[in-house]
Amino acid sequence: MNKQKALNMLGLAMRAGKLVTGEEMTVNKIRSQKVKLVLLAGNAGKSTQKKVKDKSTFYQVPFADCFDSTEISQAIGRKRFVVGVLDSGFANKIQELISS
């Protein structure tokens, strides 16, 4: 997995304004079907994980939980456990990097 490249891409998406961060805002954007990919910290709380995974599954939004909150926070410059990627180009590239 090209973890560092995926995190760099996440930081780039943040600077481009193509991310929504935080549990509630991400869930709201999932409901409005704007999110293309959800990144969930593996060390997030059980209720947060369940809520985000259930919403992602219901609305057929791919999600990944291969990063921890420290990695996500360093990549985007804010302490977060949940991040939604709004741009399909960034989402596809990040998925490609974490699956390789």
Rank of each mutant, 00 (worst) to 15 (best):
L40V: 04
L40W: 03
L40C: 07
L40S: 03
L40A: 04
A41K: 03
G42C: 04
G42V: 04
G42F: 05
G42A: 09
N43H: 11
N43W: 10
N43L: 06
N43Y: 11
N43D: 15
A44N: 10
A44K: 10
A44P: 07
A44I: 14
A44F: 10
A44L: 13
G45R: 13
G45V: 03
G45L: 08
G45T: 10
K46L: 11
K46P: 13
K46C: 03
K46D: 04
S47L: 14
S47W: 09
T48M: 13
T48A: 13
T48N: 10
T48F: 14
T48Y: 13
Q49N: 13
Q49L: 11
K50M: 11
K50F: 10
K50G: 04
K50R: 14
K50N: 11
K51N: 08
V52H: 02
V52Y: 01
K53S: 11
K53E: 12
K53M: 15
D54Y: 05
D54G: 04
D54I: 01
D54W: 02
D54M: 05
K55L: 03
K55Q: 09
K55P: 00
K55S: 05
K55D: 00
S56V: 05
S56K: 11
S56H: 10
T57R: 12
T57F: 06
T57N: 08
T57G: 05
T57Y: 09
F58H: 13
F58L: 10
F58I: 06
F58T: 09
Y59N: 02
Y59M: 08
Y59P: 02
Y59D: 00
Y59C: 01
Y59F: 14
Q60Y: 10
V61T: 13
V61Q: 08
V61S: 06
V61G: 12
V61Y: 04
P62T: 05
P62Q: 06
P62L: 01
P62M: 04
P62Y: 03
F63V: 00
F63Y: 15
F63G: 01
F63P: 02
F63H: 13
F63R: 06
A64W: 13
A64I: 06
A64V: 14
A64S: 15
D65E: 15
D65W: 07
D65R: 09
D65C: 11
D65K: 11
C66F: 04
C66E: 04
C66K: 07
C66H: 03
F67M: 00
F67E: 00
F67L: 00
D68I: 11
D68M: 06
D68L: 06
D68V: 06
S69W: 00
S69Q: 08
S69T: 09
S69M: 05
S69I: 02
T70K: 11
T70R: 08
E71Y: 06
S73Y: 03
S73R: 06
S73M: 05
S73G: 14
S73H: 09
S73P: 12
Q74K: 15
Q74S: 13
Q74F: 15
A75D: 01
A75V: 02
A75R: 06
A75N: 07
I76V: 14
I76E: 07
I76T: 09
I76H: 08
